[in-house]
C-alpha cells in the first residue's frame, strides 16, 4: 500500500500547503487553465454543433474534422507550439483546446440532431422562428447530452492540463513533473491524487448543473 503512504505523507507535509508552490496556488492555476481551455473549446464547438445539428447538415464534415483533431497528438502539439511560440500560456491552450473540441462538437451535433422530431415539427407548424426552435425546443431537450459532452471534455482537460508543467508553467502537473525529475514519488502521487480529485469535482459540478438546468420533464424521461 505504498501509494497510499505516499499520498498521506504528501498531504500531511505542511510545506506543501503554502507559498508559490503550495497546493492552493497550484490548484488555482490548474482550475484557471481548465476553465480557459473549456471556455475556448465551447465558444468554438457549441455554436457550430448547435447550428449543424439544427440544420442536420454537415455531419460528415464534422466527423471528419473531429477525427482530424483527435489525430493531433496533444503532447507533441505542446512541444511544437512551445518551439514556435515560446514561453507562455498560448502553447498550452492550443493542445488543450484541440483536445476538447471533438467531444464538445460531436456530442452537441448528435444531441441536437437526434432530438425527437415531433415537438420540433409542432413548433415549426405553430410558426416559431428557427432561432427560437433551436433555443426553446431543441436545446432544452438536448441539454443532458450536450452537458455530457462538455463533462467528458472537462475531465480530459483536467487530466491533460498537467502537461503545462512540461513547458515551465504551473498547475498540479508541477508536482508530477518535479517529482519525476527529483525522484520524489510522494510528489508524483500527490499531484496525481489532486488531479483525480479535481476531475471528480468537475463531475460533481456538471451533475449539479444538470440538476438545475435540465428541465424536470426531460430529466424524468431520461431516467425512465
Amino acid at each position: 500500500m505504498n501509494v497510499l503512504n505516499f499520498m498521506q505523507s504528501f498531504f500531511s507535509d505542511g510545506s506543501h500547503w503554502h507559498g508559490r508552490d503550495g497546493i492552493p496556488q497550484r490548484v488555482w492555476e490548474h482550475v484557471q487553465y481548465t476553465a480557459a481551455a473549456l471556455a475556448i473549446a465551447s465558444a468554438i464547438g457549441l455554436p457550430v454543433g448547435l447550428v449543424t445539428g439544427h440544420t442536420r447538415r454537415g455531419g460528415n464534415t464534422l466527423a471528419f474534422l473531429a477525427a482530424g483533431a483527435r489525430a493531433l497528438p496533444t503532447f507533441g502539439l505542446l512541444v511544437l507550439m512551445f518551439f514556435w511560440l515560446g514561453l507562455g500560456i498560448v502553447p498550452v491552450m492550443i493542445p488543450l483546446v484541440v483536445l476538447a473540441i471533438p467531444p464538445v462538437l460531436v456530442t452537441t451535433y448528435e444531441a441536437v440532431r437526434t432530438v425527437d422530431p415531433s415537438p420540433v415539427d409542432a413548433a415549426r407548424g405553430m410558426g416559431m422562428p428557427e432561432a427560437r426552435i433551436l433555443f426553446q425546443v431543441e436545446v432544452p431537450a438536448a441539454l443532458p447530452l450536450i452537458l455530457s459532452g462538455l463533462r467528458s471534455a472537462t475531465v480530459q482537460i483536467v487530466s491533460t492540463a498537467t502537461i503545462a508543467a512540461y513547458v515551465s508553467l504551473g498547475g498540479v502537473g508541477r508536482y508530477i513533473l518535479d517529482g519525476l525529475y527529483q525522484h520524489d514519488y510522494e510528489k508524483v502521487v500527490g499531484g496525481a491524487a489532486l488531479t483525480a480529485v479535481l476531475a471528480l469535482l468537475a463531475l460533481l459540478l456538471f451533475w449539479a448543473v444538470g440538476r438545475v438546468a435540465v428541465s424536470p420533464g426531460v430529466r424524468r424521461r431520461r431516467t425512465a
Binding site: 502537461i163 508524483v188 496525481a192 488531479t195 483525480a196
Partner: peptide, 18 residues
C-alpha cells in the same frame, strides 16, 4: 474507470515504474 481516466498518464507511468 472515470477516476482512473482522470489520473494523468505521466503520473500513472511514474508510479508503475516501481
Amino acid at each position: 474507470s472515470t477516476v482512473l481516466y482522470a489520473i494523468p498518464s505521466i503520473a500513472f507511468f511514474v508510479v508503475l515504474i516501481d
